Amino acid sequence: MIPYTLPEVLRLVWSLVWQQIVQHAQVVAWSLFRRHHQAVAQVYHYKRRLALNTS
């Protein structure tokens, strides 16, 4: 076999490392997680602000 060429090595590295295929289910799951996390953070934020204002 012949040695690897630079363009072939770059293409292999790009394919294996940088180019990750994200499935639609992963995108939706991330969105749901992020929205849930933001909702929980908002509840605690409001609780803290309410506690600071009433004391």
Rank of each mutant, 00 (worst) to 15 (best):
R34G: 14
W14L: 08
T5Q: 08
A41D: 00
P7M: 01
V17I: 15
Y44S: 02
S31D: 15
E8C: 06
N53H: 05
Q19S: 05
M1L: 09
W30T: 09
Q38C: 13
L12W: 06
M1G: 08
W18H: 03
L52S: 04
Y44K: 02
H37I: 12
H24W: 14
A25L: 07
L32E: 07
V17Y: 01
R35K: 08
V13Q: 11
R35L: 10
R35Q: 13
L12D: 13
L6V: 10
S15G: 07
I2C: 12
A25P: 01
V43Y: 12
P3T: 03
P3R: 06
V43S: 04
V43K: 04
H45Y: 15
V28R: 10
L52T: 04
V40C: 05
Q42T: 11
R48V: 10
V9W: 03
Q26R: 01
Q20Y: 01
T54F: 14
V22R: 02
A25R: 13
S31W: 10
T5D: 08
Y46E: 06
S15M: 14
V9Y: 05
L50P: 07
Y4W: 15
S31C: 12
T54H: 09
K47F: 03
H36Q: 12
V27G: 05
M1E: 05
T54Q: 07
Q26T: 06
E8M: 08
V9A: 13
P7D: 08
Q42R: 09
W18Y: 05
L10Q: 07
M1K: 03
W30K: 12
V27I: 03
V13E: 10
V22I: 08
V9E: 05
V43W: 11
Q42C: 02
A29E: 11
A39S: 06
Y44R: 07
L16P: 15
L50I: 04
N53R: 11
A51P: 07
V22A: 02
P7L: 00
Q26V: 01
V17L: 11
H24K: 14
Y44D: 03
Y46F: 15
A25C: 03
K47E: 06
Q19T: 03
Q23R: 11
A29Q: 10
L50V: 07
Y44W: 11
E8P: 14
Y46R: 09
L32R: 10
Q38T: 11
V28E: 10
F33Y: 14
T54W: 12
L50C: 09
W30P: 10
L12H: 10
L32W: 13
L52A: 05
H36E: 13
V43G: 02
Q38F: 10
R11C: 05
